[in-house]
Amino acid sequence: MTTLRTHPVDRTTRRARLGIGLVLVLALLWTLVPLVWMALSSFKSGADVTSAEPTVLFEPTLDNYAKLFSGANNLGPYILHSVLAAGISSVLAVVLGALAGYGLAGSRMRGKKHLAFWIISTRMAPIAVVVLPLFLLFRGANLIDTIPGLILAYLTFNLPFAIWLMSAFFAQIPPSVEESALVEGCTRWQAFWHVILPLTKAGLVTTFVLCLVFSWNDYAFALVFSGPNSQTLPMAADQLVTQTGIDWGQLTAIGTIVVLPMIVAGLAVRRWLVTGLTLGAVTGE
């Protein structure tokens, strides 16, 4: 890094550096103000939340959170549904995705390109297009308003994502690793389980986290498929929006509850995010 700084290309003038600093400060404000404002508002009393002049200094209260966990609209079941639907679909996606991704990365079959293209196109299919037939199929199979229904719905985008991404992670492991394991007498499965798989722990975790974020944040599927027995957290937020008005104190509290775990999980895998979000097309660490 020191060589970088002394080099003429990187000798940024004072003015340029000031400009860059200013741009980044503005970008940080634009990015963070809504989130900070949401978190702050969730600790405000009703009058402070909707005061015409923004209140920055206020007496913090846990009322909004307390209300969310008491009374008729207890948030508990929503959290449970979200954890079950997003968690189970992500685990299934990672397990099946790791197996299939390994197979895809190593396979030399003909038509592999077509297979790969089919996988990515199922991932990229607009959700609305998937919701439509699933709505009919789920009605027929009594899967509307069930957790298994949501898990299946989330697998429509998580499974192709996991297969494609895991195959990109497996492709980065040199084949000599597997070959030497085989020479030393491992079976194919042992080589995969004890040698290859541990090498791609980062890939597994990244795939899991991204699947979790996608399904946890889902609204389009939950809107159509979930009911009283399966409503997820984003639906809890949606339901606070009523004809008679919105309880913004509670809404910002739900928002904070929905967002915080995903931010923590997402930043935990930040090093591999580029790989994950570009489906392996760009890597950076």
Binding site: T31, L32, N217, P234, T252, I254, I263, R270
Partner: peptide, 30 residues
Amino acid sequence: VLSLLLLPMFVAPVIAGLLGRFLTDSTFGL
């Protein structure tokens, strides 16, 4: 700085939308 700039990506789009509504409300939006 990058980590902070990345935060909106993890926000559920529903929450992003509702937060947008909150911020642009004509009487109390920031």
